[in-house]
Design a protein around this nucleic acid. Structure first.
Lengths: 323, 323
DNA sequence: CTGAAAGCGCTTACAG
DNA sequence: CTGAAAGCGCTTACAG
């Protein structure tokens, strides 16, 4: 089933057959019809490698993920994939997954250079990772999930972390909490920083205890918190996963959630639903954000020198049972 | 940076250059050296499309997933990706993710036929899905995650579900539970069936309440169970996610876990750790299973008429706090 | 609007 | 062991 055969069956040249396959407008209606008939009668499917060889497009993008360990507890993978897929599939573009491991970034780089990938989306890159810088230096299409740690001219999509934390602060205040605290994320990440800043802007006198987004750190942080500040009655925990670890600590200490202590999480991840009680939390529209990342990447691919953009989504508060 | 240039720099023919790039043994040592030097001095990277056009291999495999909704609560995606990646990456083979949506299966089929994908791994396919059958009929490389509902000549990788359920039964009996029950998975899936069968083989007089693997169904099933059988003191819940939903129901009814009723789950998913108390559960080695799926698929790709195989992994019991 | 022809960058029989 | 040459299946200036 090659274009050659289709052309022969339709009685036209290979060039014309190619034109109708690719939807070029400048083809006579009758010829177009003949070709279309030939295509369906032969069950023709274009060979992608041959096309790719001349168009210099792979019609594939990469999704670079952190390794499984760091991924673990990240509830977003399915949503991210789903969002990207939504925009990419109708275009016939492949989504290739690369979970970070030894040599992954180099691999991605070379795939990009050899034309095996048209661009990449970087998720949760280590702030110290040199790859994003190398990619933009090489002028390769790339978009980041989340603002980079230090300002750099790179396209990214993020949620307004600061505003989300403020939402949580206002919620706790509206609940009449008097002694408010927060368990933070890691302070060497943008999300960790912004969620703290945004919260303190709303609740300047909040007690601050540090965590690192993992469940385990949520347990430890809450133990420290009730040790140093036994009268807390409201806490904003910067990730649902930490909140999931922290709540049982409260229960074991005899405190009820939300009656004695109100809890607001962040992410609206699956941990929000598997917590008891279910978490009131700040929601980021992950799927929509992922779709936007794909769109931004596609734009860069089709318009090589297009401007660097950052698009920020507003979060919303999902009120459930914990606060 | 084409092979042509490398050949010129090395002073050999394109054919010879190609041979050393592809590690053909029959190349004189001095020429091989010259070519290798030329490769590194020019920074040559082979164009994959050109290679693919002649070798008829895409060096890419597809991972077909259920849609996000069904995916949700499936804790395994990251582990599956990780396992497949482990075997596929060193070979330079791309993993392309396809989340089921309108037209996905057709898409995968055509990608396979047009040589854009060398094979596919099917995860959680709807038992009624005709695609697996079509694929094997077409002689295309495919492996299933999990035994197919009706016997068919297809390669698959699974955990020994029956044995896992038996493990759970023995655990409950060793805990001296007298009134044992089980909350099942959907009975139109192999996993749902086998986990029930295996459990009943061990605890023939168990009370049986049906669920469908979702958290919500775990809640409902547990409510029914304590309604009809208030003296239960041990229950095997066929998925961790259902167990996560069921435990709060027990708590609200004034029963303590594991003191009043012992719980054993299945999967060792993230829900096992976010439950309170943490779940004793049956563990499937997902990552290893995924790696094996990749290996089986690769074998089919390289050896077209290789035999159909099924490989079954033994599960193990992870004892934590719930039972 | 249409076709003949060149060319994308590689691999692989086929001779030697 | 090595090279000249054909060929993989497509797209796209270039003429007409």
């Amino acid at each position: 089933m090659t274009l050659e055969e289709v052309a022969r069956v339709a009685g036209v040249s290979r060039a014309t057959a190619s034109r109708v396959v690719n939807g070029a407008s400048s083809v006579d209606e009758s010829l177009r019809h003949a070709v279309q008939k030939a295509i369906s009668s032969t069950g023709y499917l274009p060979n992608i490698a041959a096309r790719s060889l001349v168009t210099r497009r792979a019609d594939a993008i990469g999704l670079l993920l952190p390794d499984e360990r760091r991924m673990d507890g990240d509830p977003h993978l399915a949503s991210v994939v789903s969002g990207v897929t939504r925009v990419v599939r109708p275009l016939g573009i492949h989504l290739v997954l690369m979970m970070t491991g030894p040599g992954t970034r180099e691999q991605a780089m070379s795939d990009l250079r050899r034309g095996r990938l048209d661009g990449v989306i970087l998720v949760h890159t280590d702030p110290a990772d040199p790859v994003p810088g190398q990619l933009i230096a090489a002028g390769l299409p790339v978009v980041l999930a989340g603002r980079p740690l230090k300002p750099m001219p790179i396209t990214y999509v993020d949620v307004n972390q600061t505003a989300g934390a403020a939402l949580a602060g206002r919620r706790l205040k509206s609940l009449q909490c008097n002694r408010i605290a927060t368990i933070t994320g890691p302070q060497d990440t943008p999300a960790g920083q912004d969620r703290l800043t945004g919260f303190l802007a709303e609740v300047p006198d909040a007690v601050v205890v540090h965590g690192d987004f993992t469940r385990q750190s949520g347990v430890a942080a809450m133990e420290r918190l009730i040790g140093c500040c036994p009268d807390v009655d409201g806490v904003f925990i910067a990730s649902d996963l930490m909140a999931n670890g922290a709540i049982p600590v409260l229960h074991r200490s005899g405190r009820k959630v939300p009656d004695d202590v109100a809890i607001v999480g962040f992410d609206d991840s699956s941990a929000a639903l598997t917590s008891e009680p279910e978490l009131t939390t700040v929601r980021q529209p992950i799927t929509d954000m992922a779709a936007e990342m794909a769109r931004q990447l596609l734009r860069q691919i089709t318009e090589p020198r297009s401007p660097v953009t950052s698009v920020v989504f507003e979060p919303s508060l999902v009120v459930r049972d914990s606060g």
